[in-house]
Design a binder for these strands. Structure first.
Lengths: 347, 347
DNA sequence: AAAAAGCCCGAAATCGTTTACGTTAACCTT
DNA sequence: AAGGTTAACGTAAACGATTTCGGGCTTTTT
């Protein structure tokens, strides 16, 4: 049980040369003879030498680590984004330090401190619902550490790059679709007031109604907190019991929409004949339900790769002392029309 | 735009004291006067000082980081495990460096090297399908870095702790249930030959058949490679077209089982009357399908917390130079009986 | 009054790499 | 043969925090 890790000077001592030479030989510097390189590489492999990246990071003032903060890893959308981020990071030889905020402002702050202490080279963050101020994130900007926001971006204007999906247009198009199908009383189960995404979807909903000169019925707009299937179920029942006329439901998330479908099935309502349903996120399983769920697809993994590439570009620019001007990328959504909303076919 | 990070000596210089004193004041050492502590803390807060954990890590020979390698983050099971790991790590003030192997042996090796270079204090890993040898993981053992395997553990005996679910018993119980319901020709869509989990589930399937003195029909056993919905669909169609009598299907995963349900629906087969179906994993949405899917629930998040706690215990033991003997924890599964398998009710 | 004990703090080594700056010796030039 | 190149390596100072020895200075003890 050899507890000690091999260091450069272990190799140097064994070979009778200096650590500097060993370091350079390992990095294939030109002013080291081939013979020495062979000897160094040979011993390094034999002894299974792995450079201590803390030491290297300290010296070079870069950690080769990027930090990622998401509200919730279990969420399929976020895990897809993370997958995208990680594949880009892997190719660029960066490590990923992952944090989850659990939608809590306090935890997000603690996470940010930890990442800062770790001296990550850059940060990717999707802010939590509870986040109200942004000092804990702006400290990265102030210290020359690039930060790229994705999906849930700060409401206030922040001088950083952002990658998001076109929630407004996505919501607009799906509600417009419901209207085209003949719906005139469309309920909306919206997300939290504080999340940028749910705000934009809500506004897309409003805009579509306006285009059709329909009044906004506040009684048909309910606000989810947990964004769970259960909430969708409960809200659907509440709407059904309210006696309000409803012929369509647009849920802010597929999870909520699934709850809606369950409740409607239990209530014996026909989908889409009596009530059309649409969600947002386009979960894989949404397509195989009976009826298959109409939804808005967002390119999650692509969001991750784009955000990560943007971040790496800014990190590289930072090293070269270039002026990096923040970019904002808005990804297009795609409306997936399926049976749950196709009222017209049943007319 | 202040690019320089604050260091201990910045604080020391400003206050006219030594870095040693600043360091101790921040750590609340007893031999620093309250007055000095107040001054140090005050300036540290004012200047937003964050210790450089690479420097501290280098000096203390610990990184306060644990490495995690999973085959695929998107998989709901793994993201749940990760969530469990992260919450334990958070409470213990550890950071998580996440790697995904994409089920590739080579990538897993690269990931392991990276974690080793980062000098993580411990490693949690679920091995990839493709993994055949374990030297890249055993190097952690040899260097005094604890490693805990979870879910997909090495087949060969490795002198490390393991946390897994009782795949054998879980599969046994669900197949036994299908038999009790009257099934006599149960197909099994199994997982890859190399994954410990799918081997154990396969053996549970065999054991249940044996208990009922039923012959094993090789034509009813198909091997998934991707474990996707599409595979489940394709295999189901293949079985249906083969002309073999089938009255039950046990899929190694809920994803595969969902594909099965879709194919059966499209083929006009009644579930469970004609063919009963059961999966493994108990996805949340499995319960709300029509028919709801019988499945085996595994405590994924609990697996994460247990594995992480075990790892932290071993890390602590390592520091105190105790003898840490590897533990193996086997978590019980829970059979969730739902309509998709309840043949008897329709007799 | 001398010695012992506490209280606060500093000097300096250390962790493992990287790198600016030398240094040496061999080889070229004219 | 004196000076100039160049190839190949070494010295030593960083990087930023921690920690082991102490070492003054004041207070208490005998």
């Amino acid at each position: 049980m050899n507890k000690k890790q091999i260091t450069l000077s272990d190799l140097a001592k064994e070979l009778g040369i200096s650590t500097a030479t060993v370091s350079r030989a390992l990095k294939d510097y030109p002013d080291i003879s081939d013979e020495t390189k062979v000897r160094v590489l040979g011993l390094a492999k034999k002894w299974n030498y792995r450079p201590n990246s803390m030491a290297a990071g300290l010296r070079k003032r870069e950690s080769k680590v990027i930090g990622v903060i998401v509200p919730d890893i279990i969420n399929h959308f976020f895990s897809s984004v993370i997958k995208g981020i990680m594949s880009v990071a892997y190719d660029a030889d960066y490590r990923v330090m992952l944090m989850q905020s659990d939608e809590s402002f306090e935890k997000e702050q603690v996470d940010a401190e930890a990442l800062f202490s770790s001296r990550v080279d850059g940060v990717l963050v999707s802010v939590a619902h509870g986040t109200k101020s942004y000092e804990h994130l702006l400290q990265f900007n102030n210290s020359g550490i690039p930060i790229v926001f994705f999906d849930k971006v700060p409401k206030e204007v922040v001088d950083s790059s952002k990658v998001m999906v076109d929630d407004f247009h996505g919501a607009f198009s799906v509600v417009e679709h419901l209207l085209e199908q003949g719906c005139r009383h469309i309920a909306h189960f919206r997300g939290p007031q504080l999340a940028s995404t749910s705000i934009n979807r809500y506004e897309g909903y409003l805009a579509a109604l306006k285009k059709y000169d329909l009044p906004v019925n506040e009684a048909l707009i309910l606000e989810c907190e947990e964004l769970t299937l259960e909430e969708g179920q409960a809200f659907t029942n509440r709407i059904l019991n309210s006696g309000q006329p409803v012929d369509g439901i647009f849920a802010v998330t597929d999870a909520v929409a699934l709850g809606t479908l369950v409740a409607l099935r239990e209530a014996g309502k026909k989908v889409p004949q009596e009530i059309a349903v649409a969600g947002f996120s386009d979960w894989k399983i949404s397509a195989i339900l009976d009826p298959p769920l109409t939804s808005v697809a967002q390119p999650s993994e692509e969001m991750g790769t784009l955000a990560a590439k943007l971040l790496l570009k800014e990190i590289a620019g930072m090293k070269d002392d270039e002026e990096v001007s923040p970019e904002t990328i808005i990804l297009r959504t795609e409306l997936k029309i399926r049976k749950s909303s196709m009222k017209k076919t049943f007319l």
